[in-house]
Amino acid sequence: MKENGIAAAIIVGVLAFVGVMWYMFENPALNPRLEEVSYVISRKWNMPVPLDEISGISVVDENNIACVQDEEGIIFIYNLSTSLVEKQINFGKPGDYEALSIVDSTAYVLRSDGVLFEVANYLNPNFSVTQHKTAFTGKNNMESLTLDKKNNRLLLITKNKGPEDDGHKGIYAFNLENKAVETNPIIRISLNDPIFQSKDADDDDEIDPSFYPSDIAVHPTTNNIYILQSNPARLLITDATGKPIELHPLDAEAFPQPEGIDFGAEGAIFISNEGKNGTATILEVEFEEEKNE
Rank of each mutant, 00 (worst) to 15 (best):
S105A: 12
K161I: 07
N223K: 11
A135F: 12
V85P: 03
P258K: 15
N64V: 06
P32H: 09
F136V: 15
I189D: 10
I187V: 13
A135Y: 13
G260T: 09
D165R: 15
S272I: 02
V60L: 10
L176G: 02
N124K: 07
N124P: 01
E177Y: 13
R33T: 09
H168C: 11
Y212D: 02
L250R: 08
E177N: 14
K291N: 08
S105N: 13
F91P: 03
Q229H: 09
P125M: 08
F25M: 15
I77S: 02
D166V: 05
I269V: 15
D148W: 01
P232A: 11
E182R: 12
D61E: 05
K276L: 06
L191F: 11
L30A: 04
E289A: 05
Y212L: 14
I41L: 09
V14Q: 12
T106G: 02
I6W: 02
P48Y: 11
I171R: 05
S58N: 10
V37K: 12
N4W: 02
T106R: 06
D204E: 09
S42R: 14
I225N: 00
A7Q: 10
D70G: 03
I75P: 00
N292R: 12
E177Q: 11
E164S: 15
E293I: 09
N273W: 06
S58Y: 01
Y226D: 01
S210E: 11
I237A: 00
N273I: 13
N27G: 04
E293P: 00
V285Q: 03
P256R: 11
V109E: 00
Y122Q: 05
F174D: 01
E3A: 14
T82A: 14
A217N: 09
N175W: 15
T158G: 08
V115P: 00
I10E: 12
F270D: 00
V40L: 05
V60C: 04
D239I: 05
E177H: 15
P256D: 05
D96Y: 13
A173R: 05
M142G: 03
Q229Y: 09
E274Q: 14
T241I: 07
N4D: 08
G114Y: 02
M47F: 15
N292C: 03
Y226K: 07
N231V: 15
H219N: 08
A180G: 03
V60H: 11
Q197P: 04
F263P: 02
T137P: 05
E118W: 04
G73E: 03
P28S: 14
D166Y: 06
I207K: 08
L84N: 04
N277S: 13
D203T: 07
N31A: 04
A233W: 08
Y122T: 07
M1I: 01
S198Q: 09
H248Y: 14
T183Y: 06
